[in-house]
Design a protein around this nucleic acid. Structure first.
Length: 263
DNA sequence: ATGGTGGGGTACCCA
């Protein structure tokens, strides 16, 4: 079973690429971020016609997440718990039946946090605290759980092309990386690093200043796995070629192949 | 060189 995450940077603008990617990559579950669409305007029928169930948590103008799946979710939850006043659409969770039980997949779009001297950085850190609290609660279920999404976190120095450029950025500040490590220390494993050495690997290349042709990238899109999910991980892929497609997103899909069987 | 590009939606916000 293939589970993928992709920040598509606008569902309507990226529909052709999304359809092409679903046909080519054929994920069983796809977590999309930055759909930049309200639920009613999401291009649902085009995706359903490819055999996917579509669940969205949309918002006007920016943010918004979607969960596409070949198997119908048994349960769907929208919004990260812990702050009822937070109206930003950044989180959707689905529970799916598989052969030996269930898997739980959360699609998240973590706040960027820049500029760091604005209210946006404390919002990012509090969102990460809420995520850790939620994740710790979910771990007690002892289920295969995958927290997939655009974390807007560069975990380590080798996850960016030049530390000097990123050292004061909200994506790499010590407090940001410490909050990400807290997830790891709870028991979550980064799927890509579970299947690679500490070599530079990127999932995002800025549109500006020729970052893509120069390979000036960062790795900020992650699949974090509970122990029960990590036990089933077979392989991962960063689908880098998608960045060369026409009208690309600035992110590429990141996927994990898992030894879960359909129910 | 304080730039550069792109989506959303129609004046700026967000990344």
């Amino acid at each position: 079973m293939k589970i993928a995450t992709w920040n598509i940077n606008g569902a309507k603008a990226r529909l052709d690429g999304l359809v092409a990617w679903l046909k080519e990559s054929n994920p069983d579950i796809a977590c999309l971020q930055e759909i930049k669409s309200v639920d009613e305007a999401f291009p649902r029928s085009e995706i359903e016609s490819l055999g996917y169930h579509v669940e969205t948590h949309g918002q006007k103008g920016f943010n918004g997440v979607a969960l596409l799946s070949k198997i119908r979710p048994d349960e769907v939850n929208r919004g990260l718990p812990g702050d009822e006043l937070d109206e930003q659409a950044r989180f959707i969770e689905g529970v799916f039946s598989v052969k030996d039980g269930v898997i739980r997949v959360c699609c998240l779009y973590l706040p960027n946090g820049n500029p760091v001297d604005s209210e946006k950085y404390p919002y990012k850190l509090s969102w990460m605290q809420r995520l850790a609290t939620f994740a710790a609660q979910r771990l007690r279920l002892e289920e295969p759980l995958i927290l997939a999404g655009d974390y807007n976190v560069i975990p380590e120095a080798h996850d960016c092309w030049d530390v000097k450029v990123w050292q004061n950025d909200a994506l790499f500040l010590p407090e940001t990386r410490a909050a990400f490590r807290r997830l790891r220390n709870l028991g979550f494993t980064d799927a890509v690093r579970a299947t690679s050495d500490d070599v530079p690997l990127y999932s995002f290349w800025d549109y500006q200043a020729g970052c893509w042709p120069k390979n000036f990238g960062i790795r900020i899109d992650h699949l974090m796995m509970s122990p029960e999910a990590a036990d089933k991980l077979l392989s991962t892929s960063i689908e880098k070629h998608v960045r060369s497609w026409e009208k690309p997103s600035d992110h590429v899909p990141v996927a994990g192949e898992f030894a879960f069987e359909p129910a």
